[in-house]
């Protein structure tokens, strides 16, 4: 099980090592990958009694232009809340971070190949793939705004997640405090992996 959890991370590591080692040989491959280790993902829960917001600024993301692929990995413990008790409950009672420390998304950026990466610009694309949270995988399709500027690629967007779809149950007693549907926002600034 641990092997499965680490497989995507190992893949990213292998791609990175490959890019660095063979960058000069295969310039096309190296120039088509963008990496971020400090991407920002936040979520917002709007409930009758309380609004809850958490931010994660340590998101790992790799965009492979040649393959139209995006891979995003998140440590659940990197989500920071304003109140310590909220953070504790989130990790211990809801997402069970010790059992499921990572969330990930792997998908395709539809028509990414049509973007002219030599010019700065902003484009709206469809992204579809599989999101895995709390050990449960679900298909997801949403819009993503891609901005290209020199050697940077910024991916921005938002979507809604239904917590019960991921086996995260909100006890009746806190139904007024935590929404079952949460808004997720992301803004991930990637840098081109240079050969």
């Amino acid at each position: 099980m641990n092997r499965n959890k680490q497989s995507s991370q190992k893949r990213i590591r292998l791609i990175l090592i490959f890019s660095i080692l063979f960058g000069n040989v295969s310039n096309t491959i190296a120039q088509s990958q963008y990496l971020s280790k400090t991407g920002h993902i936040s979520f917002f829960s709007n409930a009758p009694l309380e609004n809850i917001e958490a931010h994660n600024h340590q998101v790992l993301s790799l965009v492979d232009v040649a393959k139209n692929e995006i891979s995003v990995n998140v440590l659940m413990k990197a989500f920071e809340f304003e109140k310590s008790l909220m953070q504790e409950h989130f990790n211990e009672n809801y997402v069970e971070s010790d059992l499921y420390p990572k969330a990930k998304f792997e998908g395709k950026l539809v028509n990414l190949g049509t973007i002219d990466f030599s010019k700065p610009g902003t484009y709206k694309l469809d992204v579809e793939g599989v999101i895995k949270i709390h050990g449960i995988e679900k298909n997801i399709k949403t819009k993503v705004e891609i901005s290209i500027d020199h050697n940077q690629l910024i991916a921005r967007g938002n979507f809604r997640l239904n917590l019960s779809n991921f086996g995260i149950t909100i006890p009746q007693v806190v139904f007024q405090n935590i929404a079952n549907e949460i808004d997720v926002k992301f803004e991930i600034l990637h840098n081109l992996i240079k050969p």
Binding site: Q9, Q58, L75, K77, E80, K102
Partner: peptide, 11 residues
């Protein structure tokens, strides 16, 4: 120390 994601992460 909050985990490992290509790098070891601290916050």
């Amino acid at each position: 120390c909050i985990g490992y994601l290509l790098d070891i992460l601290f916050n």
